[in-house]
Computed example of a mutant assay.
Amino acid sequence: MHSSSLLKHLVPFITRTSQRRLAAYAQSDLVLHNDPVLPIIDFSSFASKNETNDYPRDMIEKLANACEHVGFFYAIGHGIPNELLLRTLSVTRQLFDLDSKIKNQYAARLSANSSKLNQQFRGGLARGYQSVGENVTNAKRDRHEGFDLYRDLEDNHPLRLQFNDKNLSNKKLPDYPELAQGRNPWPKEFPIFKETLTEYTAAMLRTGERVMRAIALSLNLPLNHFESTFNESFWVIRCIKYPAVHQNESKSPEYGHGCGEHSDYGWLTFVNQDPDSHNCLHVRTTDTTKATYVAADPIIVNEQIALTCNIGDILAFITNHKYRSTRHCVISPVKPARSRISTPFFFEPNLDVKLRINETTECYYGEYLTNKVRNNFNYYNDETK
Rank of each mutant, 00 (worst) to 15 (best):
M59W: 04
S332K: 13
V294I: 13
E362N: 15
E134I: 00
A295K: 12
E362G: 12
N138G: 09
V330R: 07
N378L: 15
K241W: 06
N156E: 09
S131M: 04
N302K: 12
A64K: 07
V283S: 02
F377G: 13
A202C: 11
R206E: 15
L84N: 10
F147D: 03
D276E: 14
Q247C: 10
P36C: 02
N320L: 03
T384W: 04
D382P: 00
T384M: 06
P158A: 08
I237Q: 00
P185Q: 05
N167F: 14
E61Q: 14
Q247R: 09
K194G: 08
F347N: 00
A66G: 04
G260S: 09
L10E: 08
V373Y: 12
S18Q: 14
H33N: 11
F46D: 01
L110P: 02
E189Q: 15
A337G: 09
S233D: 07
V91E: 02
L221W: 03
Y255R: 07
Y200T: 01
R210C: 10
K166E: 15
Y379W: 07
S131H: 06
Y200P: 00
R109A: 14
K188N: 15
W267K: 07
L369V: 01
K194N: 11
R340Y: 08
Y255M: 08
T326Y: 03
D152G: 07
C363L: 15
L85N: 02
G266R: 03
P298A: 04
I192M: 11
L219F: 04
I14W: 15
I331F: 14
T384P: 03
D97R: 08
R20E: 15
N378R: 14
A64C: 06
D97N: 11
N50C: 06
V136N: 05
L221H: 03
L351V: 15
A180C: 10
H144M: 12
S111M: 03
P185T: 01
N376W: 13
Q120W: 09
F147C: 05
N82R: 06
C239R: 01
P36F: 03
K385D: 03
A291C: 05
D155P: 04
P333Y: 06
I314Y: 00
T360R: 13
T343C: 13
Y150Q: 01
A126T: 12
H321P: 02
T292R: 14
H33W: 07
R238V: 07
D152S: 11
S100M: 12
K140G: 13
S4G: 07
A337R: 14
D352T: 07
L117C: 04
N310P: 00
I240T: 09
V91W: 00
R238E: 06
L10T: 14
F147A: 06
G123T: 08
R87L: 11
F345I: 00
V91N: 01
N113E: 06
S44L: 10
